[in-house]
Amino acid sequence: MRKTHQRRVIIGFLAAPVLLYTVFVASPYVQAFYIALTDWRGLSAEIGLIGLGNFTELFGDPVFWQALRNNLLLLVTLPIVTIGVGLFLAFMLNAAGGPRSGEIRGVRGAKFYRVVYFFPYVLSIAIIGVLWKNIYNPINGLLNGALRAVGLEEVQPSWLGDERLAFWAVLAVLVWNGIGFYVVLFTAGIKAIPASLLEAAVLDGASRTQVFFRITIPLIWENIRTAAVYLGIAALDAFAVVQIMTGGGPNDSTQVGSFYLYQNAFSYGRFGYASAMGVVLFVVTLALSAFTLRATRKERIEF
């Protein structure tokens, strides 16, 4: 009696969420694998199975390779720059004053800075794309305006229109967008370090740099790992910024997998080909997450 009642509750509570999730999330991921094996263009009812044809074509597609190269470059640069700057700022905010009387002293106004740094992170990435496209505008954007204001009328890069600069301009926007989140993440880690540990280090004559590299970083390693995985996922995406700011150009210098997939599906109607790309990116993401987690594994330090 009690058992059947309980079963009714379990089914009743789970039915709607499981159904919704299966239809809109799980089933598309599964279907992607099947569509990837077809030459489907969406309009025709007939779907031709072409086996691995899409994958063969994909591996011979120079634009796809360029996109992957850019994703990989983002995958290296985005975490390094973001974690580097984020750690530096978090350390300065929280521990730069050094420990005194059992307290980790932050600088004055630490809370204010954390609030301000977080502003870009709460905005929609699409809105950020529109905003920065205007900032990079070579004629009446904020950046070239600043260069003119300090007398550099000669130096007026076209930023997103310059093949050598566009990628770095995109990277800068992604860093600007994310820093605040990682400052908060690292702050949480630093605050959890017992002040007595830092105090002991300072008494033993450790400099700030030593405290940072020998104590802070090892003790918040878990947070740094989390950051690396999150940033890796962001680097493999980068869709909105690329779509809005550069459209993958100039000359594919900012092309990324997500945007090339979108173009193939919704501009060229090549659904099979786009799905094959999705499958490849899916495998790459899985492999890289597993690799990151393994490569950064360390003994967890309990304190």
């Binding site: 598309p28 599906a265 799905s275 990116l281």
Partner: peptide
Amino acid sequence: TFPVFMALVPLFFV
């Protein structure tokens, strides 16, 4: 674990 864009095409048709 997975970004949405990987399932974009099937999602559109679903």
